[in-house]
Computed example of a mutant assay.
Amino acid sequence: MNKVLKTAVIASSIIALLSCSASPTGRKRVLLYDDSKMSALGAQSFEEIKKQEKIYTDKATNDYVACVSNAVTAEIPGHYGDEDWEVVVFDSEQVNAFALPGAHVGVYTGLIKVAETPDQLATVIGHEIAHVLAEHSNERLSQNQIAGIGTAVAAVAIGVSDDIKHKGAAMAALGLGVQYGVLLPYGRAQESEADLMGLDLMASAGFDPRASVFLWQNMAKAGGGSVPEFLSTHPSSQTRITDLNSRMSRAIQLEKQAIAQGKSPQCIRPASFDAKDTAKESDVDKTS
């Protein structure tokens, strides 16, 4: 091993030891960046997206997405629960949504067509916000930096490079890679954490957690011969639904507690987004 490589390995080991923390489900991981740096990267990326994508200005649609988002974010614990979350609807057929550090949420109109009910939309928004709360972007940036393959992304994260060619990589590190042609998906463990944390969030807001299963079924159907953007880095399988169902009893109790506390979001989905041939919650026994 040459001297430079040896030094890098030693430095990485020291960083890992000093920065080791646990994820919400107890996984050991390394976080190298503080909240302020991650929030700055999230804000920078969100501004770039708003310049590149067409913003959907229909009031009824924006009110609907804001209603669902606000109900979910009201249940966020810690400092992110005190943030004023920025929610923007983008006019695009992409079946997708995202949330970024710094309290930003983006929802594409294509997703609203597939997520047939407020409960289903809350499933996706809860999932994406959970990625932020669990600091998955920080985790991924840190992994790349330690591995020595993410120097450019890390440089953007800590504010030492504004090179335009690095912006796509930075966005990918925030979970935006599919839209911008850079594939850097979250890992399976991170996706599982976001599923379960998001389920608790939306149920605590008074949404029906059973809608999560129908949402993933609708997502799979929406792809037809291709895979929807949201699922292209989010493996959809029976395992995922099984995991959600294993958490369902707890989530239903959270929903019941929320309803008892007077939490019953009345979010009205615009009729213009009605879609055919997707899983209907009305066809399912809700006696659980």
Rank of each mutant, 00 (worst) to 15 (best):
E116K: 13
S246C: 00
Q238F: 03
V30F: 10
D195G: 04
N245F: 02
G106P: 15
V30M: 08
G198S: 01
A71P: 02
N138I: 02
T239Q: 12
A43V: 12
K6P: 00
G224Q: 11
A203C: 01
D63S: 03
V65Y: 06
Q266N: 14
T233S: 14
I14Y: 11
A222V: 10
V65H: 04
I129Y: 04
S39I: 01
Q257N: 12
T7S: 12
D34S: 10
G181F: 07
D277K: 10
T287P: 03
L133W: 08
D277C: 03
L254N: 07
S237K: 02
V30H: 08
R188Q: 10
D91R: 06
E281R: 09
A134L: 09
A271V: 07
T57I: 05
Q120P: 05
V124D: 09
G42K: 08
C20S: 06
E255I: 00
K54C: 01
Q238D: 13
L111V: 11
A152D: 13
G224M: 11
H79R: 08
L215N: 02
H234A: 06
Q44E: 15
I129P: 07
T7I: 07
L176Q: 14
L244I: 14
A173N: 13
P24M: 09
L133Y: 06
L215P: 02
A220E: 05
I149Y: 15
S19M: 12
M1T: 07
K263G: 03
L231I: 09
A169G: 15
I15R: 10
A173Q: 12
G42D: 08
V72S: 07
Q217K: 15
V182N: 01
A271I: 04
L5E: 14
L41G: 04
T242G: 13
V105G: 09
R269Y: 03
S92R: 05
Q94N: 15
H131I: 09
